[in-house]
């Protein structure tokens, strides 16, 4: 039931060359310690991997005359992806996600540095303060911005109240609103890996650099940032991926017409009911995500998250 035999680094039932599945098959008395992995593996195989494969399958089908699905192999959905109408939406998604990532990095770095180098007691409190929004209801956090930005919202009322503007500004349902929502939503995703990365840099290195006549700016540019790079990249990936596939933020803050990839997929799936095309869009997003993960795999550091 539990992995007890040969747990050490020198476990014997596992040779270096053969792929894991061979060992998964070989459930003899001494390798039974792989057994506990099976429920999780089976569950995600059935309810995660299989659904993803079905999306791929669906993307090759075509839409029937009455809105159903016809299982005839076709690439037409993928050809439709190149429609300039949709190209604009992908571009918007990429640009919005890119800028969000950049802004999160620029805003998050000083915050992460401050936390990483704070005295122990403060550090714990501050990390918890970053973790709480990380885990609290994303929908509600986005809704808070509707409450602030809408025509009769907090900000407009305030500005009108102090007489700065006569008419309410159109703040909600703009790219700006979506952008603020994305940064607000994903900033903690950037800060946490950054804190871990910066904390790992011995402060003696900064002192050594200072001793060798480096200014604060040079220390950051030449010591901290290069050493924190794995964390910076991990943070960027953690912000970019959900941002490029964001749904709640563009849906609530961008309004119906300012589509991004996430909202487009939802619209095709649930509103237009064109499942094959929605599936093709999903495959596109999936490829984008996997590419990001694979390209950054070498440089990012995920442990400790």
């Amino acid at each position: 039931m539990c992995s007890s035999i040969g747990i050490g680094k020198k476990g014997w039932s596992f040779h270096h060359d053969a792929p894991a599945f061979v060992h998964l098959m070989r459930l003899n008395a001494f390798s039974s310690s792989l057994l506990p992995l099976w429920p999780a593996l089976l569950f995600l195989g059935v309810f995660f991997l299989a659904p993803l494969l079905m999306v791929v399958g669906m993307s090759l089908a075509s839409r029937g005359t009455y809105g159903g699905v016809e299982w005839a192999l076709t690439l037409s959905n993928y050809l439709r992806l190149a429609d300039p109408l949709y190209l604009g939406i992908y571009l918007r998604s990429l640009v919005m996600a890119g800028i969000t990532t950049l802004v999160c990095a620029i805003l998050g770095f000083p915050l992460a540095y401050t936390i990483a180098r704070a005295p122990q007691r403060w550090q714990t409190i501050l990390i918890i303060m970053i973790l709480i929004p990380f885990w609290t209801n994303f929908l509600v956090r986005t809704y808070a911005w509707i409450f602030i930005l809408r025509a009769d919202g907090l900000l407009n009322t305030l500005l009108q109240g102090i007489g700065l503007i006569a008419e309410p500004l159109p703040l909600l349902y703009t790219d700006g609103a979506v952008f603020v929502g994305l940064v607000y939503g994903y900033l903690p995703f950037m800060v946490l890996p950054l804190i871990i990365a910066i904390e790992r840099i011995p402060s003696a290195l900064e002192e050594a650099a200072r001793d060798l006549y480096a200014s604060t700016w040079v220390i950051f540019r030449r010591v901290i940032i290069p050493l924190a790079k794995p964390g910076i990249i991990a943070g960027c990936v953690l912000v970019f991926i959900p941002a490029v596939g964001a749904f709640i933020t563009p849906y609530l803050l961008g309004g119906g017409r300012r589509l991004m990839l996430g909202t487009l997929i939802q619209q095709e799936m649930l509103v237009a009911r064109d499942w094959p095309f929605g599936a093709a869009l999903s495959v596109l997003l999936m490829v984008l995500v996997l590419l990001t993960l694979i390209l950054t795999r070498r440089y990012a550091r995920w442990d400790g998250l």
């Binding site: 035999i5 040969g6 050490g8 020198k10 014997w12 001494f30």
Partner: peptide, 11 residues
């Protein structure tokens, strides 16, 4: 390793 073999922790 010899000890682990005697103990049965390695085979």
């Amino acid at each position: 390793t010899i000890l682990r073999l005697v103990a049965g922790l390695d085979r």
